[in-house]
């Protein structure tokens, strides 16, 4: 039945296109190297096609992909004898973005602060938050993937949002204060 198989292949491509970028960004948070991240993610897809075709249509494919990428990244890190901390500081993520255009200074500031705020999160908290936002999975799936309870996932997400919220708020106040100060000095 060629057409059945063809559609499996097409579906595989769809899954690939849908998740590739998020998976690579997820891998990047561990490896901090775009090329290594791409290698790991592609390898996971190749192995699914070669060994686990039945996964392609499974509801759990997203869970499977993110979990496999995480495990492979941790293995890779162990190989390189680096500690497996999830980092999203400014140095780790290359600056240029081809995504949403940063059309004005305000958005740029806001984005910068958001990024800095995320870098301030405690490691476990950051890991949970990052996986949640990248994979868009349910809290249950995240809990299973990281082997923690759903309660812990919710707590860590709440904690992350509160920290980011506070940070962004502080920065706004700070900028405003600086702006007034500059105004006073030059005015």
């Amino acid at each position: 039945m060629p057409e059945v198989n063809e559609s499996l292949y097409q579906h595989f491509q769809k899954v690939f296109e849908q998740h590739y970028n998020a998976l690579c960004n997820y891998a990047l948070s561990f490896t901090k190297d775009p090329a290594t991240s791409e290698d790991i993610v592609q390898e996971v897809f190749i192995r699914i096609w070669e060994k686990k075709k039945e996964m392609i249509h499974a509801e759990t494919i997203r869970f499977y992909l993110f979990t496999a990428v995480r495990n492979n990244c941790l293995t890779q890190l162990q190989k390189e004898k680096k500690s497996a901390t999830v980092a999203l500081d400014e140095n780790s993520v290359p600056e240029e973005t081809t995504g949403v255009a940063e059309n004005n200074e305000n958005t740029k500031d806001y984005k910068k602060h958001l990024r800095l705020a995320m870098a301030q999160l405690p490691p476990k908290c950051r890991e949970v938050f990052l996986l949640s936002r990248l994979s868009q999975q349910s809290y249950k799936e995240i809990a299973d993937s990281l082997d923690i309870s759903v309660k812990t996932v919710e707590n860590q997400i709440g904690k992350a949002l509160k920290i980011i919220r506070a940070y962004v708020k502080d920065q706004k106040v700070l900028i405003l204060a600086i702006a007034i100060l500059i105004n006073l000095l030059t005015g």
Partner: peptide
């Protein structure tokens, strides 16, 4: 915003495929 912010680096999906 944090979702797009974290997936900040743009990987070339077409080339990868």
């Amino acid at each position: 915003d944090s979702a797009t912010m974290i997936a900040d680096y743009d990987f070339d999906t077409t080339a990868a495929w």
